[in-house]
Design a protein around this nucleic acid. Structure first.
Lengths: 156, 156
DNA sequence: GCAAAGAAGTTGACAAATCAACTTTTCTAC
DNA sequence: GTAGAAAAGTTGATTTGTCAACTTCTTTGC
């Protein structure tokens, strides 16, 4: 059991906001926004390409956001679609262009630095426990939210 | 060291977003917004009152947001200021009214449920390690951000 | 193979968070 | 005590994130 709500809330939101801050800072020098980071990151590690739906699931972002990010990356020439033009983008996989790969590598370098700095003074064992608990809480809250929403709907 | 960036990013942001979701859901029934939750929560546990600056630090929110939340809580009649009227709110402590306390208790009940559900299947030892690591990462990233921003400024 | 249902993606409208400039109050040094 | 600096708080503008309606494409059942 977690005893102190504020510990979880403030701890998590502090990390969340600092991650956003890092993304934003780095992207500014590339002419991109913080929201692009995760897409570049995942596109780089999935050379076979990713659909918008894939990215939604990986980035845990909603599809409206992903749609705009992809449109943006395309106008920058950082991605290409693997589908015939006439079918538009439906289930079309996005892959990084050469230029996109270059940007992704720059982004990954920063990410690596942030990860190294963020993980200072943490042992491998602690890290494993941390991630186990992080994922557990994440899942538990997800379930709790869904339950809450169901009961909110039925109360209407 | 943390190995996988996406684990931290997606784990943290998933929890962050679910916490936001819970706050929003519950507040809707009280005619408030999700942003009010933490203020009510901290005001309830600090009976002596809190200034806007205190709340900034506790909630890890910026002062613009806190300012609007407090104005909102005041118009709802949930808080009062402990300063003479003519000095406005400068360093004035906000305290919950009776009505505000009632709302805060409702909020706290939900929070307790969320905390219990979120913390399912986690042992006390794991929890302690989790929070230690959470705070450590939080501090490390905070420092990293500041360093980054300094070097970004000096590069201009 | 066609209609209905559903999934994928886009877009405009709205809500929330953040930034920057501003005012007001307090503190500090003379 | 007064000027200047610093801190606290407010406000409008901008950016970012989310929601809901919509279009387009695919699948399923007849």
């Amino acid at each position: 059991m977690i005893h102190r709500f504020e510990q979880l809330t403030t701890g998590v939101s502090q990390i969340y906001k600092n991650i956003q801050r890092i993304k934003k800072l780095e992207m500014r020098s590339l002419g991109l926004k913080g929201t692009h980071v995760m897409c570049l990151y995942f596109l780089h590690s999935h050379a076979e390409g990713l659909t918008a739906a894939d990215l939604c699931a990986l980035c845990k972002e909603n599809k409206a956001g992903i749609s705009r990010i992809l449109a943006d990356l395309e106008t920058h020439g950082y991605i290409q679609y693997t589908h015939p033009q006439e079918k538009k983008r439906y289930r079309s996989k996005a892959v990084l262009t050469e230029d996109g790969k270059k940007q992704a590598k720059t982004v990954n370098r920063l990410i690596l630095r942030a990860v190294l700095e963020g993980g200072r003074d943490i042992t491998a064992k602690e890290r494993d426990i941390f991630y186990r608990v992080l994922n557990l809480i994440s899942d538990n809250l997800e379930n709790f939210c869904e339950e809450l929403e169901r009961s909110a709907v039925s109360a209407d």
